[in-house]
Design a protein around this nucleic acid. Structure first.
Lengths: 149, 149
DNA sequence: TATTGTTATACTCTATAACTATA
DNA sequence: TATAGTTATAGAGTATAACAATA
């Protein structure tokens, strides 16, 4: 808790400003159009369902930081493509359980490599030290995702 | 060029996959709705115009990694709000020069602090070491934005 | 003919508000 | 009455294709 580190309060605000901008801009550069494949939020939702197993819509919306209506539409789109299966929750008929279909798992494997390749190509332009700094920062960036509000 | 560092090819692919996901998810969490203020891409474009001075639409689109039609619409929205000024390029009547208006500069100052505060709040939950790792990685993340294709 | 920018069209992502069904 | 999810509505961000004006 003692503030002896190199990150002072003004630096922290600057850090926040730079991080905010770089995340928005990286997002736009990493993005791929959904015409030939799966749009970004749909893909992110698929990954979450794959990683965290059968889950409710509300839980998925929370994890992806979108509203319930947004996630409802995303799931409708994924459902129409046969990539997820929505089944009524046996314990609570108001809710649905969302699971990845076999087609969803296959699609994930197929698309994921293309997206990742884009980022890998950009990473390939950096030097080893830069890549190591990003790797070292990743756990902290992932920690930023945790919602505690 | 010699590959002696700790980041091997498989690690690099993994790094790319994690970075891609964390950027997409951070983007959604950092985002603020544009109803009360300036939407994300509009704000990002304002920042770029402020930092890099008068510029052409095509140059702005390239820097923000969006298509020309997308940037054209963003500029129309910013123009309607009086935040930028589009003037014909005196050297090439096909082009426009985009500059920040006084109102645009004022808006930038006002809005920027709100957005940044969101990120700063999340950064505040991390410990000093995590924040330092992010700070150390920022130049590398910014280097990822450079287009060399 | 090539380039710059805009308009046309269509789709994704986003939210809040209103609604339905169930608890 | 409260909660889970969907539908209605509206706006931002996104692209490709077609177009206009200029080089």
């Amino acid at each position: 808790m003692t503030r002896t580190g190199p990150v002072e309060i003004d630096e922290q605000t600057q850090l926040a400003a730079r991080l905010r901008l770089v995340v928005g801009r990286l997002h736009r550069r990493i993005r791929i159009d959904g015409r030939e494949s799966v749009p970004p939020l749909q893909l992110s939702a698929l990954v979450t369902v794959e990683q965290h197993g059968p889950m409710r819509l509300s839980e998925l919306a929370r994890r992806e930081a979108v509203s319930a209506p947004t996630m409802s539409r995303v799931l409708s789109a994924l459902d129409e493509q046969g990539l997820v299966i929505r089944t009524p929750d046996p314990n609570d008929a108001r809710g649905v359980q969302i699971v990845l279909s076999d087609a969803g798992a296959a699609k994930l494997a197929e698309v994921r490599s293309h997206r990742t390749a884009l980022v890998a190509r950009r990473l390939g332009r950096l030097d080893d030290d830069e890549r190591r700094r990003i790797a070292d920062a990743l756990p902290a960036l992932e920690a930023l995702l945790v919602d505690e509000d």
